[in-house]
Simulated assay, not measured.
Amino acid sequence: MKLSRTDVLLMAFCTGLIVANIYYCQPLVILIAKEFGLTESHAGKITYLTQAGYALGLFLLVPLGDMFERKKQILLITCLAIGALLLAAFAHSFLLLEIACVLIGASSIIPQLVLPMAANLSSDQDRGPTVGIIMSGLLIGILASRAVSGSIGFLWGWRTVYFMAAGICFLLLLLMARRFPQSRPSFKGTYNELMSSMWYYIKTEPVLREASIINFLAFSILSAFWTTMVLFLANPPFNLQTLQIGLFGIAGAAGALAAPLVGKFSGGQNPRKNLLVGLILQLLSIAAFYFTGSHLYLFVAGIILIDIGQQAIHVTNQTRIYAILPEARNRLNTVFMSVSFVGASFGSALGLWLWEQGKWPLFCWGCGAVIVLNICIYKFYSGKIKINIDAGNSN
């Protein structure tokens, strides 16, 4: 079966709404801190617990897409997501909310099952653009989630956000059951053999190692920013409310618009060049954040740069790993995305720590150092990654 344009757009729509579950909590930290009588930095733990849960779900559940029929797996995990979101909405203690956030993360892995499904059903020429379009839906979902949760949380409370998310997932469950295609598995072994094979790919595939390491650090920067910016904007000189903070997510829409364009260039003879562009854009964004002062136009410019930079890095790396072994796309994606979201969890924790130690200036210096380290890793691998011109992929 070949994917039509409608199929790809539907997948982008569903992935965007489901991935939003991971990011609803970020603008809500201030409201949650007030309800449970916590400091804002302590309440911020739910951001990296959600991301850690996502990494756990990626590692344990996504590989099963190579072993079982993907559509059934997608529907079952969506049911689990609905239960986790309702648990968060009814949480009567911060501990229960922390547990719910881990479960929300672990059950919001649907995009990482949809992407390999789309890659399997796409031709070699269409794979990059298809991944780019679905990644656009993904990023729009991330950005919209912050704006929507900030607005709804401000007007009707943070619990309403989770009730809304559960309702959205229920409607998506019905839509995906009706419209998603079947996707047959290719792996015939046991679960232990399935998991063991991932370590083999880590040892034998340098492209997978490079893409995973670079994405770990790139995601840590993005996550550190979106977690810490809430504290930055909520304090002097801005003193913004949750509603206003959430609206800054819209500024990152340029990153979503850039994803299909990046996808078109990510399957060329040397897609690695996109990685350096993305890293430089991230570094420029940190410079804009550092010199923001009381000038929010610099802050908005930084948001646009950091999101476009992240898209250049992520879409390029994801397209590269899908070209390695078609029969093992779920396992390769598991390694890649698990490492990426461990990086996201690490970044949230790092951002909160840098904020506590030295507020916004130290945060910017710390993130700048991480990006420079990532550029050094890129340069290190430049002499080790062979460019396969005939296949049109980086290997």
Rank of each mutant, 00 (worst) to 15 (best):
N215T: 09
L138N: 14
T228Q: 04
N120D: 15
S196R: 14
V102H: 04
L284W: 02
I18R: 04
A52D: 00
K264H: 12
S223H: 06
E98G: 11
A177W: 06
F13G: 06
L138D: 11
V102N: 05
S294R: 12
I202N: 10
I74C: 00
S107W: 02
P116Y: 05
V8N: 02
T228I: 02
V335T: 15
I32T: 00
N235I: 08
L49N: 02
P326F: 08
E69R: 03
L222R: 10
A312W: 13
I82Q: 02
S197T: 15
K34Y: 04
Q26A: 01
G392N: 10
V342R: 08
G53E: 00
H295W: 15
W226F: 06
Y54K: 07
V300S: 12
A259V: 08
T78H: 01
I221M: 04
N21I: 04
P271R: 09
I134H: 06
P260V: 07
I387N: 15
L217E: 01
N317D: 09
S41C: 00
I133K: 06
K34G: 06
P181A: 06
I303R: 06
L171S: 13
A20K: 00
V148G: 03
P361V: 05
P111W: 04
L172C: 08
L95V: 11
G57W: 05
N215F: 00
V148C: 10
N239L: 11
A312K: 09
W360E: 12
L58K: 07
N274Q: 07
Q269N: 15
M67K: 14
Q182D: 14
E40L: 09
Q125L: 03
V161M: 08
Q318K: 03
L243T: 15
A100S: 06
G246W: 05
M337N: 14
I385W: 07
L296G: 09
T228V: 00
G128V: 03
S108V: 02
E193D: 11
